[in-house]
Design a protein around this nucleic acid. Structure first.
Length: 299
DNA sequence: TCCTTATGTACAA
DNA sequence: TGTACCTAAGGAC
């Protein structure tokens, strides 16, 4: 279930389960065996997400505090240049693609299936990665190159929405295509795209250059809130409180994706708000969903 | 048991 | 624009 919120959640979950101590890494499926062997015995130091890219930073563990040392005298300790959190020596760069999945569990870990690309194990937990489109060991400069080709991510504190708007406002491409372009904005996928355009009444085929600054500002802020909720609940819910099944007296969505949505994967069903039939179309090899009546908004 | 589909991306032509 | 890649679930038979 990989849009940006999933990856940010994984960054937190990997850190919570593995950061600090030594880790046993393996690749039952085989494609990551050499790297896993290199990493075994080192520690997960830091995790990071940018859009749909996940980075796991490994390095020498922080040395244990020396409990046998004499207690400090009244003199202040000399500054220790090696103090502070150690910098990762290597990063695992993970991208789940369309199919990738991550499963956490408590030890003892069950025997892995032969599709597990990467398993991490420590004394208390294990985690399996299956089906990623990317799982490679990279250096810090290589990691930086990934950041450099990604647009701002609404879930990152360093994100600048104006950088995204500069590209949107100069483009003849549709806003639907631009929202999926990770160079423009990182982390939005097919669900958030469809839903945020519905929530703002914007025709998905409107050219980016016709999106007003006020509209972009509203889209950005909305995505930030929706995706933060997505991280918190580990699923995508986009329906406003007044439009929930309980509030409107309609049956809840029965779907393997779980969350309540307005238009995503609701082709040929009536719009929750106006009753018009929700439409779908192919756009750059992905399915676009929208309500032609609610999403006519012009600037 | 086979077929389709999926919250994604990269690269070739 | 088409195709390749990675996996698993659900539905049609």
């Amino acid at each position: 279930m990989p849009e940006g919120h999933t990856i940010h959640r994984l960054a937190k979950d990997y850190a919570a389960a593995f950061a600090g101590g030594p880790t046993l890494a393996s690749s039952p499926q085989g494609k990551f065996s050499d790297a896993a062997a290199l990493l075994t015995g080192t520690s997960l130091i830091r995790t990071e997400a940018h859009g749909k890219h996940l980075f796991l930073g490994f390095g020498a563990a922080e040395p244990e505090p020396d409990v046998t040392a004499e207690p400090a005298e009244s003199e202040p300790a000399a500054p220790d240049v090696t103090a502070g959190p150690p910098e990762p020596a290597d990063w695992i760069h993970i991208h789940l693609g369309l199919f990738g999945k991550v499963t956490f569990g408590d030890t003892p870990a069950p025997p892995p299936t032969d599709t597990v690309r990467l398993r991490l194990v420590n004394e208390t937990a294990y985690v399996d990665l299956r089906g990623p489109t990317t799982c490679t060991l990279i250096t810090d400069p290589e990691k930086q190159a990934v950041h450099d080709r990604l647009g701002p991510d609404p879930l990152r504190p360093d994100a600048d929405p104006r950088a995204a708007y500069r590209r949107v406002s100069r483009s003849r491409s549709t806003i639907a295509a631009l929202l999926m372009d990770q160079k423009v904005i990182a982390g939005v996928g097919n669900v958030y795209r469809a839903e945020v355009l519905f929530r703002h009444g914007i025709d998905p085929y409107r050219p980016g250059r016709d999106v007003t600054p006020a509209e972009w500002d509203a889209i950005w802020r909305d995505l930030t809130e929706l995706m933060r909720e997505g991280v918190r609940h580990n699923r995508i819910d986009t329906v406003r409180p007044e439009h929930t099944p309980e509030a409107m007296g309609r049956p809840p969505r029965v779907d393997d994706h779980g969350g309540e949505v307005y238009v995503y994967r609701r082709a040929d069903q009536p719009c929750h708000l106006c009753g018009e039939t929700v439409r779908t179309a192919d756009l750059a090899a992905r399915n676009l969903f929208w309500c032609p009546s609610c999403q006519r908004g012009r600037p």
